[in-house]
């Protein structure tokens, strides 16, 4: 018998936020009936771009249901950026831990959340899924690599506990080992320290990103973005075109512009709108 924490039992026996959101802003579906567990996760945003409502439906064991229920509780009230930072470990910790063999349930929660956010941001089709490694459970090399990195996995058994990969016929064990070797081989090297940018370099890069990427995207909706100033890590911008006065502009700014600039330029950046 599995040893589940009281919190897992509570979320399993009294799951929160069960159901479907009819006009959801984001929907993420993961898993399948053949794999033995599946989760559909829905969220709806309020005007400030925070998750107002989150619901789920889960087919699976107690820890799958509890992980889904916990996830909905964790994301409500968060912005999508904040929600996107939730890791599978956060879900497991929220529940007071999961048996190691059940960690894949927390990974399923994180994946559904990510898919739902990608769905909202219109990125669903652009995601590169990678190549299937485990045919029994349909797990790709990218998923394995990512989960292995994030959770510090060291053995094939770890990978199976966290992703199910390798838990069926076992034919993919060699490929999983190769991925682990790559991840572990890379691990001892100290992560490269991001170089501190001078303000001038920062401005240059922000400008480049706005011109080459952000404005062409906003143009599709007849909007545009102008860089006003950079003060330390504060990026001051002005919205123009149809973006000016659009109720969703705040969401665009935070979820798209800020995310992109953080990825491309520096993770410390915050984007603020200057009126007028």
């Amino acid at each position: 018998m599995w040893e589940y924490s009281d919190k897992v039992k509570d979320h399993f026996l009294h799951p929160r936020n069960v159901g479907v959101i009819e006009n959801a802003d984001g929907v993420g579906e993961v898993g399948s009936i053949a794999c033995g567990d599946a989760l559909t996760f829905y969220f709806k945003l309020d005007e400030q771009g925070r998750i107002r409502e989150a619901k789920f439906q889960t087919f699976g064991c107690a820890s799958a249901i509890a992980s889904s229920s916990a996830l909905t509780e964790m994301v409500i009230g968060k912005t999508l950026d904040e929600a996107a930072r939730i890791t599978n470990e956060d879900i497991a910790n929220y529940l007071g831990g999961l048996p190691k063999e059940k960690m894949h349930c927390s990974v399923m929660g994180r994946e559904a959340l990510e898919k739902a956010i990608a769905c909202y941001r219109g990125e669903a089709g652009r995601q590169v899924e990678g190549e299937i490694v485990c045919e029994c459970f349909g797990v790709t090399d990218r998923e394995i690599e990512r989960v292995a990195r994030e959770n510090g996995l060291r053995t094939i058994a770890d990978v199976t506990d966290y992703t199910k990969a390798g838990g069926g016929c076992g034919k993919c064990h060699e490929r999983i080992q190769a991925i682990l070797d790559r991840v572990l081989g890379a691990a001892p090297q100290a992560p490269e320290r991001p170089k501190r940018l001078t303000t001038l370099e920062k401005i240059k890069r922000i400008e480049q990103c706005i011109e080459r990427e952000i404005n062409p995207t906003l143009k599709q909706d007849a909007g545009r973005l102008e860089l006003v100033d950079v003060e330390g890590d504060r990026v001051l911008v002005r919205l123009g075109g149809s973006c000016a006065g659009c109720v969703k502009s705040h969401v665009t700014l935070k979820h798209y512009v800020e995310t992109r600039l953080r990825e491309v330029v520096s993770p410390e950046l915050t984007v603020e709108e200057v009126q007028g």
Partner: peptide, 10 residues
């Protein structure tokens, strides 16, 4: 079920 045995397949 898979989940009860610790294996992943039914």
């Amino acid at each position: 079920s898979a989940c009860t045995s610790g294996s992943l397949e039914p």
